[in-house]
């Protein structure tokens, strides 16, 4: 099968900064990869590491979490927790033989529509190059 690989991407966006940035990117008609589907959470600290593991085990090609810049968190310190969980989780993903570049944490503020577009495009391109999630073909669970 010589089909071109189309990565499947998921994003978790915090309500206050990154989700607003994504809206702004749209309002300014800036392109964002169509294969990225996003989920809104109130804070990047809401993202349970289980969601991420589950996503990879189900074959997602890339996960991006985006939150407020350090120090800007609407809930004071939530993004710092997200950062720590991200760091730990990145190590765990390595043990699954997953390229850590498939997992990204970005700080995107509400006024950075341009940045949202740029970051997501870069991310999509890098996953495109990296190829499909090696776990995709052998799902562990249902």
């Amino acid at each position: 099968m010589a089909q071109t690989f189309e990565p499947n991407l998921i994003g978790f966006l915090c309500n206050w900064c990154s989700y607003a940035a994504a809206d702004l990117a749209g309002s300014n008609k800036l392109e964002v990869p169509a294969n990225l589907a996003t989920i809104r959470v109130m804070c990047s600290s809401r993202v349970d590491p289980i969601f991420i593991l589950n996503a990879y085990l189900r074959g997602i090609d890339g996960v991006i979490i985006a939150g407020c810049h350090p120090g800007d968190c609407h809930y004071q310190t939530g993004n710092y927790y997200a950062r720590r969980r991200f760091a730990l989780l990145s190590k765990i993903l390595k043990t699954f033989n997953l390229d850590p570049h498939r997992f990204r944490l970005s700080w995107i503020s509400a006024s950075e529509g341009q940045r949202f577009s740029q970051v997501t495009k870069e991310f999509a391109e890098s996953i495109q190059k990296a190829g499909p999630n090696p776990l995709r073909k052998k799902p562990f669970i249902d």
Partner: peptide, 10 residues
């Protein structure tokens, strides 16, 4: 509680 969800994730 202000509803950030950090406790739920942790």
């Amino acid at each position: 509680c202000r509803g950030c969800g950090n406790c739920a994730a942790s």
